[in-house]
Design a binder for these strands. Structure first.
Length: 372
DNA sequence: AAGACGGGGAG
DNA sequence: CTCCCAGTCTT
């Protein structure tokens, strides 16, 4: 068999594969908010939100975000704190900060138009190989690969590829495959169809091979190894951390909150003062209270709630202390300067600050229960 | 190449 | 309980 003829066969299979996939997609695609129009800005926001996050989780956030920031100009003009508040509960908050910064960049350097070249779009903060390809293809119909977890799973099965998809180098292999098989005139639909197939049919467990539109193209189905693919190394167990948090109330019923550092875990979100437990007793709590610059009523403190919160790489076991404040030595705690990292606020004002879910749990178990 | 970075839902 | 999701950035 000649080399030319093999290429012809590949091309024929490719055309049939595209046809089978796109025909299925045209009929079965979900009606998602970001599919109602092709505004590159809206596609962009949706893609950032969808990173490591399921569609059902994203939808209400996306709707709210678009009502608050319907355009590049609106988002670029917003306060970062407002953007973080809109992101509250979604997780991976650097996505929100990077998106905000990148949108400002688009407004200033690209006249508010989301760039349509691989080179320009990849310079934007938070836009990596996947998101660049997703925006170029979905918004501009440019035949660029957009390889996410879905695509790697689908293609690993179709081509029985046993490479570890947890490795950073593996993605490039799948990008090369997509470049070979992508529809050049329907790049937007093709990439979305591949992901839609991964989400609806070619699922991680119990894939619905019997109703799969491309089952005739699938090596894993043919060999019966779909349950073995894709290969993915399992990650190590998260590290456990014992924390102690303080819900401190002054005589007017205000509570003390503080802003987290600009970088690292939950950067720039707000929280109740807390420390990593240093002792088994309460002495570390007392020294921290002294450091804040306040005094408590009485000399006894006790734990009123235990909160467990699981991150991808850390587990917080938080002992929550509630206490009444009798004296405040540090008068800065009452200044409304936003640069102030610690401040007393009213219970109603809690709704204005972005909190991580771990501290929303603390609010639920203490302040929201009344008993101030 | 490996780890940091959230939170939720499915099985 | 385990897995992992429309990943990116940092080291």
């Amino acid at each position: 068999m000649s080399f030319e003829k093999e290429n012809i066969m590949v091309d024929i299979n490719k055309t049939v594969f595209q046809g089978d996939l796109l025909e299925w997609y045209d009929i079965n695609k979900r009606d998602l908010p970001w599919r109602r129009e092709r505004d590159p800005y809206k596609i962009w926001v949706s893609e950032i939100m969808l990173q490591q996050t399921k569609v059902d989780t994203v939808i209400p956030y996306y709707e709210r975000f678009m009502s608050l920031f319907p355009s590049v100009e609106k988002l670029a003009g917003a306060e970062e704190e407002t953007v973080l508040k809109a992101w509250e509960g979604l997780g991976y908050y650097s996505r929100a900060r990077n998106l905000h910064q990148a949108v400002k960049e688009v407004k200033e350097s690209y006249g508010g138009i989301v760039p349509n070249s691989e080179e320009d779009i990849s310079t934007l903060k938070g836009v990596g190989p996947y998101t660049a390809g997703a925006i170029l293809s979905i918004a501009y119909n440019i035949p660029a690969p957009a390889v996410d977890g879905n695509v790697m799973r689908v293609l690993a099965r179709i081509n029985t590829i046993y490479d570890d998809i947890a490795k950073s180098t593996t993605r490039k292999k799948f990008e090369a495959i997509v470049r070979e098989i992508i529809s050049t005139d329907r790049a937007s639909d093709f990439n979305q169809a591949l992901m839609e197939l991964g989400a609806m049919i070619c699922t991680p467990r119990n894939p619905a091979c019997l109703i799969c539109p491309v089952q005739n193209h699938c090596s894993a189905k043919e060999e019966g190894v779909q349950d073995l693919l894709p290969v993915k190394a399992k990650k190590k167990a998260p590290k456990k951390l014992n924390m102690k948090a303080l819900v401190l109330k002054d005589k007017e019923g205000r509570v003390l909150i503080e802003r987290r550092p600009d970088t690292g875990l939950l950067a720039k979100l707000w929280q109740f003062p807390n420390i990593e437990a240093a002792t088994r007793d309460h002495t570390d709590i007392f020294s921290h209270i002294e450091k804040i610059g306040i005094e408590l009523e009485g000399s006894e403190v006790h734990v009123t709630q235990k909160v467990k919160h699981v991150f991808s790489h850390i587990v917080w076991e938080i002992d929550v202390y509630e206490a009444r404040v009798s004296k405040v030595h540090n008068e800065k705690l009452y200044e409304t300067d936003t640069r102030n990292s610690q401040r007393f606020i009213t219970v109603d004002e809690l709704n204005w600050f972005p909190f991580p879910v771990s501290h929303q749990k603390i609010i639920e178990g203490t302040i929201a229960k009344g008993e101030v």
